[in-house]
């Protein structure tokens, strides 16, 4: 406890942080809630208000958001990306981390290589991925006559398959989503590997010696010893994975540009955060706030469910 005589000092030291938090975090949160409840609110509209006029107070923004076809599409995209990428990236990260942890030579080098995507700009990575899946010099009449098909299609052709239009004109929703899943999983791996590798290295080696003495097969060591001992880290990685997944936005921009979809169908791959940004751009801050709070609600519920499930599985 700080002695009461010197309490003002403590507050003084805290002041800069508190002021920043109040201005940039606390106030915006309350303001978001307020704006979301002002029907038809927009910044321009507010400036145009005459004396005595005001926005109606109510849940109109929420109703509107939920009725929007675009919003439902965004919700669907976000959910698909979350549900597909979190388990895939977690399992892959676990296997890679276990493999990395069990090799001695080059461990540090490989660790660095696996961590590189984390420190690379996600838009830049997205553009590289777009190039890999792209069809350069695109010939709409006959895809096989196109000059260059991008690395992925080259590989498919090498193994005797037909090239697929992944992200260009005429590409299917399935192809688009597949590209997004590959990209997001790849992008999510480094952080997860880092966390899980850290967790693995802090597990006491004696557990493995004990397992060895008992002749435990490798697979059983992984499922009965490693995974349970790693469960707090796994829980962390899964929860943050879902939260990140629900905030997915820049990855789509990276690959499809700010049209958020292939050329023939802009907005096809839009996400919830994308919807919020779009609404702000259209000067419909009321809608944007409502959508943001709905997103918050969803993340809250998902995290609570995660926590509930994890509490049953993470034990010790």
């Amino acid at each position: 406890m700080v002695e009461s005589k010197h309490q003002w000092k403590a507050w003084l030291y805290l002041l800069p942080a508190i002021v920043l938090l109040l201005v940039f975090t606390v106030y915006p949160i309350f303001n978001t809630v307020r704006i979301s409840l002002l029907e038809e609110y927009g910044a321009m509209a507010e400036m145009g208000l005459d004396e005595g006029e005001y926005f109606n107070f109510g849940l109109g923004n929420y109703e509107k958001v939920l009725q929007y076809k675009d919003f439902i599409l965004c919700l669907k995209n976000t959910a698909i990306l979350c549900v597909a990428t979190v388990p895939i990236s977690t399992i892959l990260a676990l296997l890679i981390a276990v493999a990395l942890n069990s090799i001695k030579p080059l461990q540090k080098t490989l660790q660095t290589i696996f961590f590189l995507p984390y420190v690379t700009n996600s838009i830049a990575i997205g553009m590289v991925f777009a190039a890999m899946f792209n069809i350069v010099d695109y010939n709409a009449e006959n895809i096989l006559n196109s000059q260059s098909l991008g690395i992925i299609n080259n590989v498919i052709q090498f193994f005797g398959g037909n090239p697929i239009s992944w992200i260009n004109q005429g590409s299917s929703y399935m192809a688009n989503i597949t590209v997004m899943i590959v990209y997001i999983v790849w992008n999510a791996l480094p952080f997860k590997i880092l966390i899980l590798l850290g967790g693995l290295q802090s597990i006491n080696k004696q557990y493995y010696d004990a397992a060895k003495v008992d002749g435990t097969p490798k697979w059983r060591v992984l499922t009965r010893v490693t995974v349970p001992l790693l469960s707090p880290m796994l829980a962390y990685v899964i929860i943050t994975g879902f939260i990140g997944g629900f905030k997915e936005y820049s990855s789509i921009v990276g690959i499809f540009g700010d049209k958020m979809g292939p050329a023939h169908d802009p907005g096809l791959l839009n996400t919830m955060v994308g919807f919020v940004y779009d609404s702000i751009e259209k000067d419909r801050q009321g809608l944007a706030s409502a959508a943001a709070l709905i997103l918050f609600g969803i993340i809250l519920v998902v995290t609570l469910i995660n926590n509930y499930v994890i509490k049953k599985r993470v034990h010790y």
Binding site: N204, Q206, Y207, D209, A210, V213, R224, V225, P228, L229, S231, H315, Y316
Partner: peptide, 12 residues
């Protein structure tokens, strides 16, 4: 059978 110094019992 080996008993480790800090027992190495599986905590879970």
């Amino acid at each position: 059978g080996l008993v480790f110094q800090n027992y190495a019992l599986y905590p879970h």
